[in-house]
């Protein structure tokens, strides 16, 4: 059996909406992944450092405050500065469709908006992420 996938679930910025992040954390753990949850109010710098320390395969960013266009690309920028290209970064939250192409261009692998079934996310991870 292969090693379980390690995932960092992170709340960048000042947003306090953590229901989605915590539900997903629990669901991913139940699906056999090793889940680390950062808690609220993490800077992009803190998130990237935690990802490196925890040696994760995936960073899942959750933001419902509308600050995603700044925070998500900033995480990508810092990862690149660290020379990291083997961490898949996912995004979720209240994210207007119009913003998605820009976020993907910045390097976010996929954006999951409200109402996305957990199954869809798990399928995406299974297809795209290898430990």
């Amino acid at each position: 059996m292969s090693n379980p996938i390690r995932i960092l679930i992170a709340k960048p910025g000042l947003d306090g909406h953590d229901r989605g992040a915590k539900v997903i954390a629990q669901a991913f753990r139940n699906a056999g992944m090793e889940v680390i949850y950062t808690g609220l109010r993490q800077t992009p710098e803190q998130i990237v450092q935690a990802a490196i320390q925890e040696d994760v395969d995936i960073i899942a960013l959750s933001c419902l405050s509308g600050a995603h266009n700044y925070l998500f690309p900033r995480v990508m920028e810092l990862l690149r500065a660290e020379g990291i290209d083997d961490i898949t970064v996912l995004g979720g939250g209240v994210i207007p469709e119009d913003d998605i192409p820009f976020l993907k261009e910045s390097g976010i692998a996929e954006i999951f908006t409200p109402g996305t079934p957990i199954k869809t996310m798990l399928e995406f991870i299974e297809k795209n992420v290898r430990r």
């Binding site: 910025g13 800077t43 405050s65 509308g66 600050a67 700044y70 925070l71």
Partner: peptide, 11 residues
């Protein structure tokens, strides 16, 4: 403030 980046006037 540095923690305010991206959040000003949003919610």
């Amino acid at each position: 403030h540095s923690l305010s980046y991206g959040e000003v006037g949003k919610v």
